[in-house]
Structures are given as C-alpha cells and as structure tokens.
C-alpha cells in the first residue's frame, strides 16, 4: 500500500505545472501543440513500463508489483526533477547556497546531457540515412549500421570535451576559484522547510528499512 501511495504521489508530481518540458533542460521530448504536463507524465510511464515487463518475466505477480511500484516511484521522481529544474538555475542556486561551482556544474550537466545527446543522436541518424545507411538486412549489416551511428556520437561527444573544458575555464569554473551568483534564485522558507523535511523523511525511511 505504501509503495502504491508513493508511486501515485510521484506520478502526480509529473502532472504539476512546475514539470514542464523546456527546450534544453529536460530528458523529455515535446512536439509543438502537445500538453506539457501530460508529456512529462507519459515520459515517466513509458520509461517505467519496460521495467514492469522484465520484472513480470523474472518474478511472480506480488513481487513484480512490489518492485515495480518502487521503480516507478524512482523513475517518476527523476523525470519530475529533470522536468522541473532548468540546469542553469540549478547551478545558480547551488553556487548561491555555497556549493563549489564545479560540483554544481557536474550535477547540472548530468541532467542536461540526456536531451543534448539524444538530439545529437537523432541528427546523426538522419544524416547517415541520407548518406544511404540502411538499418535493414542481416545481423552483420545491422552491426555496421550501429557502428556508423554510435561512433560519430561518441567521437563528437569526446571531441566536445575540450571545448567544454575551455568554456568552463573562461567562466572561472576551475578548482579553488570562488564564484558569486549574480541573481540567485529565491530560496523561500517553505522550500527550505520542505527540503529538510524530505531529507528527514528519507533518513527515517532508511532507518525504518534497516531496523
């Protein structure tokens, strides 16, 4: 029952106005005209669905439900966080709260990486198809096609590392440097309270599980 309740809460959060799939800050895709809240909700459901399938193949129904609800909670929570948090604002908030700018950037970049990589993968797939690449045929042919899709993605991403490093350096995102925030996001009392409440709830849940 507890698992069901937390999964419902997590899924409900994906329908809140804060969870809107922006252009650069989320793992969720949106096509013009679609309703943002539903897109985040649908992304959470679609991401969780394969887990349910594999759990059902491996376990009996009660275990599948028990683990599946936990997985759904985790997935929906993550999708919600990603949908609600613009990474640049997250960096600002973390720097304003006294975190190292490098740590804040690494955290935000992780959130921002998925949509960037996905867009790039799509561009590469389109370009290779227009160069005559077909994913049809035997296994060897498909593997070659996969090579032509995956390798440019990896190479171009690795190649970008230098440029990113240089960009970070020019912005003083280097170890030991102290940055200040120009316009830190407001951190209201209620938000601080909610944050510490969630940390306490997590600690309590952990303690309860380990007792």
């Amino acid at each position: 029952m507890g698992g069901l309740a937390t999964a419902v809460v997590a899924l409900a959060l994906t329908l809140t106005p804060g969870a809107s799939p922006g252009s650069t800050n989320t793992v969720t895709a949106v096509s013009p005209g679609s309703r943002p809240g539903l897109v985040v909700f649908r992304t959470a459901l679609l991401t969780a669905a394969p887990f349910w399938l594999f759990l059902l193949l491996l376990h009996d129904l009660p275990t599948t439900i028990a683990i599946g609800l936990r997985v759904t909670t985790m997935v929906a929570s993550f999708v919600w966080v990603v949908g609600a948090l613009p990474p640049p604002r997250l960096v600002e908030a973390m720097v304003a709260a006294g975190w190292s700018a490098s740590v804040a950037y690494v955290f935000a970049a992780t959130l921002a990486a998925a949509p960037v990589l996905r867009a790039r993968a799509r561009r590469i797939a389109d370009a290779q198809r227009c160069r005559g690449l077909s994913a049809r045929g035997g296994l060897a042919h498909r593997l070659r096609a996969l090579w032509a899709l995956a390798l440019p993605l990896i190479l171009s991403s690795l190649h970008e590392v230098d440029e990113r490093a240089l960009a970070l350096e020019t912005r003083r995102l280097v170890p030991g440097a102290r940055r200040t925030s120009l316009s830190p996001p407001p951190d209201r009392g209620a938000e601080r309270l909610a944050r510490w409440g969630l940390v306490a709830a997590c600690a309590a849940a952990l303690g309860w599980r380990l007792r």
Partner: peptide
C-alpha cells in the same frame, strides 16, 4: 522511398554535418 533509397538522387548536408564523421 526511405531516405537511404532517396540518397541515390538527393545528396544532403545538414547543419552540424561535421558530427556525422566517423
């Protein structure tokens, strides 16, 4: 026709085309 077949008649270069090299 799919894009890989149309490639016999249409050559294309998109923006960020340098990312397709491998």
């Amino acid at each position: 026709h799919s894009p890989d077949v149309l490639a016999r008649r249409v050559g294309s270069v998109f923006q960020h085309a340098d990312q397709q090299l491998f």
